[in-house]
């Protein structure tokens, strides 16, 4: 986030850090105890599902707090129109975790904007661990910034025509104060408050640079995809949980004293 501020703990409890091979590459949001919403381009075909990790309950990328949880990925579902009608169109992905998220004050789901959401006069915020300056500096602390929504028509004019900004996209950014999302924020949420409830209206997707105010950031429009999201969350079977076997139970009974011994040896 360029022009943002450090976030206090528990302020955005749905924020996810998507790691690939141990490095933060994208954001995401918790929508369900088994599901994360993110951007399709964070999960390019050449990337291996096994190398992804999802972190929730995190504010500082370098410090796992008492509320931090870590998850492996069971399945990634990319929207079927991704890259079909536009180089970054349909930029939305659903990530199913191998095990369930335990909710707490610091880890909670966000609501999905319905297809008929009215985005007039709402206050919206973007969050992420992406680039924070023109020089490409990053911050380990989660950043936030209030992002005014920009009408589709104005955004199309700024970018040079309707073929650049399609109906599955949404533009937002503080042009006057140069606040916007940047590299590394992709997949993260744009959320707005409606009657004390936070709805996710956008997924950070793309833009022409981060510091050219005339080119606001472009998000995947969540309301356009909400039925697809609901369909897959409701119809995709949960991951198979490994059943305890006689040998693994034996291993568990053995591993506890061994762990304890290792702990005592380190004292």
């Amino acid at each position: 986030i360029v022009g943002g501020m450090d976030v206090p703990e528990r302020k955005w409890p749905w924020q996810v850090s998507v790691h690939y091979a141990g490095i933060h590459i994208c954001g995401g949001s918790i929508i369900n105890e088994y599901w994360i919403l993110s951007a399709a381009h964070c999960f390019q075909k050449e990337k291996s599902t096994e190398a992804f990790d999802m972190y929730v309950g995190l504010v500082d990328l370098n410090v796992a707090g008492s509320h931090t949880q870590w998850f492996e990925v069971n399945k990634v579902i990319i929207h079927p129109t991704y890259e079909l009608y536009h180089p970054v169109g349909g930029d939305i992905a659903l990530v199913q975790l191998k095990s369930r998220i335990v909710f707490s004050d610091s880890v909670l789901p966000v609501c999905i904007a319905p297809p008929d959401v009215n985005l007039q006069n709402v206050v919206c915020w973007a969050t992420g661990w992406g680039v924070i300056s023109q020089k490409g500096h990053t911050s380990d602390k989660l950043q936030e910034a209030q992002m005014p929504l920009i009408s589709l028509l104005l955004c199309q004019m700024l970018y040079g025509g309707p073929s650049y900004i399609m109906s599955d996209m949404l533009c937002a950014g503080d042009i006057r104060n140069v606040k916007t999302v940047c590299e590394g924020d992709s997949g993260g949420p744009l959320v707005c408050e409606f009657n004390h409830t936070w709805l996710q209206v956008g997924v950070v997707s793309w833009g022409r640079g981060c510091t050219y105010p005339m080119f606001p950031a472009v998000y995947a429009r969540v309301s356009y995809f909400s039925e697809w999201i609901h369909y897959h969350v409701e119809h995709t079977p949960l991951p198979l949980q490994p059943l305890p076997t006689r040998s693994s139970m034996l291993a568990a009974t053995l591993s506890a004293p061994v762990t304890m011994l290792a702990f005592l040896l380190t004292l």
């Binding site: 955005w12 409890p13 004050d105 909670l108 789901p109 319905p114 936070w198 909400s226 999201i229």
Partner: peptide, 27 residues
């Protein structure tokens, strides 16, 4: 799934947990 939020306020994808509420309020 139970949709615990009214449609106009967004949709919860959780059976037992209302979505979009946090325990602290921003400024």
């Amino acid at each position: 799934n139970a949709h615990r939020c009214p449609k106009s306020e967004g949709v919860s994808l959780n059976r037992d947990m209302a979505c979009g509420h946090r325990y602290i309020q921003g400024k």
